[in-house]
Each structure stands twice: as C-alpha cells, then as structure tokens.
Amino acid sequence: MRKSPTLLLAASLAGMLLATANGYAQEQQKPAEPTGQELAFNNAKGNCLACHMLPGDPKAVTNTNIAPPLVGMKARFPDKAKLRAQIWDATKANPMTVMPPFGRNLILTEQEIDKITDYVYGM
C-alpha cells in the first residue's frame, strides 16, 4: 500500500503539534503534588488535626484533645516502620482505637502514607 508522502508529512506534523499541545495543557493543569504536611492537614486525606495536636508545627490549627499530641516522634518510635504501621492500621496494636486504618481501608495510598509518615516523623 502506497501512501502519499505529503499526507504522511501532514499527519506527522499534526501529531507533533497535538502532542505538544497536550503536553503543554497537562503541564498547566497538573496540580502540584501535595506535601506530607498538606496531606496531614487535609480533612479528606489524613485529617490528623481532627484528633492530634501538632505542637511542633505553627501552621497546625486545632483544639483537639482526642488522641496523643504528635510530638517527640523519633523518641517514641525509634523504628520509623512502626510509626508507618500505626498509620496504616492502628487497630492491629489496639483493636479499641478510634484511629481509622488509613492503609487497610485504602483511605490513603501507600505513597501518601509514606509522605505523612515522613512529615509526622519530623515532629
């Protein structure tokens, strides 16, 4: 099957233009990746501030008294993996806890849990 070289050229040019346009549009629309702090504050994501004070972060606005304040985390969790596991499913360590099982119930993605763990671990 023979194709006209002019047509082929036109098609590939159009394709390139489209690709560029799409790439540009995607770059414009793509929201900035949320930080661990943003994920921790967002009430549709980690919503940590609903139940935890974060005295180490002046931007954390909450009056809660439900769960322990997130402070001195490195001393409390020498093993960072244990902190992550606690966020992933706190009911494992304490079946009575009211803390939602963020990983087990897919409330947060694994990457989001990593980011929140990093953020909280710095407190």
């Binding site: 009430n43 909450t62 009056n63 008294n65 439900i66 009211v98 119930n105």
Partner: peptide, 20 residues
C-alpha cells in the same frame, strides 16, 4: 471506610474536641 461506630464519637469521645 473510616471505621467509626456511633459510640466511638458520642459515648467514648463525647465532650472531646474533634479539630475545633
């Protein structure tokens, strides 16, 4: 998905502050 009972908030945590 958040794994709460009615009692979680309105018995055990009643009187506590959720965020504000």
């Amino acid at each position: 998905q958040l794994n709460f009972s009615c009692a979680s908030c309105h018995v055990h945590q009643a009187g506590n502050i959720i965020r504000t």
